[in-house]
Amino acid sequence: MTAATPVSPVPVAPAGLTRRAKAFVELAGIRVPRQGIELHREAWVEHSIPAAEIDRAEAFHDRWGGLALPPAPFYEGGPRILGADVPKGSAAEGWWFPAGDCRVSMAYGFMIGPGGEFGVYGSRWAPLHASTDGWVESLALADHARRWAKTITRVTGTAVDFLDLDGLEPVTEVVGLADTWWRGKDSLIAVYRGEAVCMDAPGCLEAHVYGGLDEWGLHGG
């Protein structure tokens, strides 16, 4: 058996993240030992998994594998430890691979989609962010907002559809798809639609409204 790659428990954030997300990864995250994807390549090829999909899983694993971050504010905390596993799919439908094990038993899993999207797959596919970087940016922003907000309001179910987002600025670094962040004059709003989409359950819609933020709370990091 190939030994796990030795790593320092103090992570170095991948290039390309905002200063806020970089600090979040390096101060709040840890790295754990991990096995590389390459040792599985031959077996996966024998199971008709395209080499390009194995390359994609390996690239994800090299960038994020073994990184454990604090729990997300939704999705039962998100993956326990980020890391790729065997791709699943077909040439007709596209290919997905796991992004990391769940923290608890759940009706869906965290996956990386055909276009590199980070999302959840239950009864259907729900891409949350256009990249894993976007997912990590959203975790860092939630951590930042919780620290600086004077009020935090949780909105659930169909009431989420009645939130007034007119005039608010989308937070672009999270590259949101099903999940989005919005910035107002003194507020940040996180809208979580992925669980409702992947489980076809509108009651699972949720939004968090962080109010009373000053300039640092809105843009800091």
Results as ranks from 00 to 15, higher is better:
T153G: 12
E46A: 14
L67F: 15
W95T: 00
A142F: 00
A57C: 10
M111V: 08
A72D: 12
C198I: 03
A51R: 10
G116L: 09
T18K: 04
Q35V: 03
L141R: 13
G94V: 03
C198A: 05
V86A: 10
T180V: 12
R56L: 02
W96Y: 05
G115A: 07
T2I: 02
A3T: 00
A84C: 13
G184T: 03
F118N: 13
G157C: 12
I37G: 03
G212Y: 11
F118V: 11
H61N: 14
G77F: 13
R103A: 10
H47A: 14
P79F: 05
A4N: 02
P87S: 08
V120A: 06
E215G: 10
I112Q: 02
E195K: 07
A72M: 07
A13M: 13
E46V: 07
P11W: 04
P50L: 06
R56Q: 02
D62I: 04
T158V: 15
T158M: 14
S8D: 14
P114V: 09
D214F: 11
G122M: 08
D200S: 08
E195D: 05
V10P: 00
D143I: 08
A140E: 05
L177W: 13
P33F: 01
G113S: 01
V7I: 05
D166F: 12
A21V: 11
G194K: 06
D133Y: 02
E38H: 08
T132R: 00
D62F: 05
V32N: 05
K150G: 13
H219E: 05
D164N: 10
G221V: 06
D133R: 12
V209I: 09
R147E: 01
D62A: 10
P6I: 04
P73R: 10
M106T: 15
I112N: 07
E42S: 07
D85L: 10
I152T: 15
A142R: 00
G66H: 02
L82D: 03
L205N: 02
H219G: 03
V136M: 09
K88S: 11
W182C: 11
R31T: 12
A52L: 06
V174Y: 11
A99Q: 06
S105Y: 09
E215R: 14
T180D: 10
T5D: 00
T153K: 09
G100F: 08
I37M: 01
R154I: 15
G116Q: 07
G115P: 05
D200W: 07
W125G: 00
D101K: 04
G89M: 04
R31N: 14
R34K: 03
T2Q: 02
A201L: 10
E93M: 12
T156F: 01
A57R: 09
Y210T: 10
F60D: 11
A21D: 15
Y121W: 00
V171T: 09
C204F: 12
D214S: 08
H61R: 13
P11V: 00
P202A: 09
